[in-house]
Computed example of a mutant assay.
Amino acid sequence: MATVSTSSPPPLLDADCALFLDVDGTLVEFADHPAEVRLAPAVRDDIERLTDMLHGAVALVSGRPLAQLDALFDPLQLPAAGLHGHQLRNGDLLSANSDQVPERLHALHQRSMQLAHAHPGVLVENKGSALALHWRGAVHSADAVTAFAHAQIQALPGYRLQPGNHVVEFVPAGSDKGSALSALMRQPPFAGRRPVFAGDDLTDESGFAAATHHGGWGVLVGARADTQARYRLADVDAVHAWLLASAR
């Protein structure tokens, strides 16, 4: 990864942009449990105005499954990449990736629950085709959780580990946010536009790289020394202010 060359805030979005937004840590603050987060109605309204301004070229790119994204943004339903790009939806077009859960993932879920029982505060999140182990409520268990994950991935072909903010996930191999952005950029209404990707976590670095590859840029939310993003916003509130100014 390249080192950040600027800490400047991003320019406002214009009518030629395509906007790609991570959710947790970017549009909403983290919570002890993913189900506890709420999106401010004013932010949803700004995103809806930007969708109109960009003729529909606004997408969510998240580790959450599509069903959770739709519930969080209801009644607004946007093009979206769920489960780090394993699920992809653009209008009525849904990706053909299988959501069939392999038996090995079911077995891993049971072993993960045993790990959580031994380390109170560790949260096991079943995402269907993916599985996440959170230690936000048990930071002292981070080493135990990551060691468990690295040991278990050896017996889970077709999956990879995705580290994140106080979390490690077992996700389908070949799916990442950069590939999702590139897939959407080949389709209307995104094709031919300048992609802008905003995200906060290591999971978003592939999205920053893809946005740059397609002639756009990334926006890192928070502080991190090594990143592919060209611009930076300090926190979730700064993202909200940027979206509001762009929508106006």
Results as ranks from 00 to 15, higher is better:
residue 175 S to A: 15
residue 165 N to P: 01
residue 76 L to F: 09
residue 244 L to F: 08
residue 102 P to W: 07
residue 55 H to Q: 14
residue 10 P to C: 11
residue 216 G to A: 11
residue 129 S to Y: 00
residue 86 H to M: 02
residue 53 M to L: 15
residue 137 G to Q: 15
residue 152 Q to L: 09
residue 195 P to S: 10
residue 69 L to E: 05
residue 137 G to S: 14
residue 113 M to G: 03
residue 200 D to I: 10
residue 228 Q to W: 12
residue 77 Q to I: 14
residue 19 L to F: 09
residue 73 F to G: 01
residue 123 L to V: 14
residue 153 I to P: 02
residue 16 D to Q: 15
residue 173 A to D: 15
residue 240 H to W: 13
residue 233 L to I: 06
residue 141 S to V: 09
residue 234 A to D: 13
residue 219 V to F: 05
residue 190 F to Q: 00
residue 105 L to K: 04
residue 229 A to H: 03
residue 80 A to C: 13
residue 177 K to E: 06
residue 80 A to E: 01
residue 130 A to T: 05
residue 23 V to D: 00
residue 221 V to P: 00
residue 68 Q to F: 13
residue 193 R to A: 06
residue 129 S to K: 07
residue 130 A to Q: 03
residue 147 A to I: 02
residue 140 H to K: 07
residue 204 D to Y: 01
residue 127 K to N: 12
residue 171 V to Q: 02
residue 232 R to L: 08
residue 242 W to A: 04
residue 145 V to Q: 04
residue 28 V to Y: 05
residue 142 A to S: 13
residue 238 A to V: 10
residue 171 V to I: 15
residue 76 L to R: 03
residue 7 S to D: 12
residue 197 F to E: 02
residue 147 A to Y: 00
residue 93 L to Q: 13
residue 23 V to N: 01
residue 71 A to F: 07
residue 236 V to W: 03
residue 58 V to L: 09
residue 71 A to C: 08
residue 238 A to T: 10
residue 191 A to V: 14
residue 114 Q to T: 13
residue 150 H to Y: 12
residue 89 R to I: 05
residue 103 E to V: 13
residue 68 Q to K: 10
residue 89 R to W: 02
residue 17 C to S: 14
residue 52 D to N: 12
residue 40 A to G: 01
residue 162 Q to S: 12
residue 57 A to Y: 00
residue 167 V to F: 10
residue 243 L to T: 02
residue 81 A to T: 08
residue 57 A to C: 07
residue 62 S to T: 15
residue 52 D to H: 15
residue 203 T to S: 15
residue 49 R to G: 02
residue 20 F to W: 05
residue 52 D to A: 15
residue 189 P to G: 03
residue 90 N to Q: 12
residue 188 P to N: 07
residue 188 P to K: 07
residue 173 A to L: 14
residue 98 S to K: 09
residue 47 I to F: 03
residue 76 L to D: 01
residue 230 R to V: 07
residue 102 P to C: 07
residue 100 Q to D: 11
residue 147 A to E: 12
residue 132 A to C: 14
residue 15 A to P: 01
residue 55 H to K: 11
residue 145 V to M: 10
residue 96 A to H: 14
residue 56 G to V: 04
residue 141 S to D: 13
residue 215 G to M: 13
residue 193 R to S: 08
residue 52 D to F: 10
residue 10 P to K: 06
residue 50 L to Q: 04
residue 82 G to T: 08
residue 44 R to V: 09
residue 56 G to C: 06
residue 36 E to I: 03
residue 75 P to M: 12
residue 248 R to E: 13
residue 204 D to Q: 05
residue 13 L to N: 00
residue 223 A to W: 06
residue 121 G to L: 11
residue 28 V to E: 02
residue 3 T to R: 11
residue 138 A to V: 10
residue 178 G to H: 04
residue 33 H to S: 11
residue 128 G to M: 06
residue 145 V to W: 03
residue 18 A to E: 07
residue 147 A to C: 05
residue 87 Q to P: 02
residue 75 P to D: 11
residue 126 N to K: 08
residue 120 P to C: 12
residue 196 V to G: 03
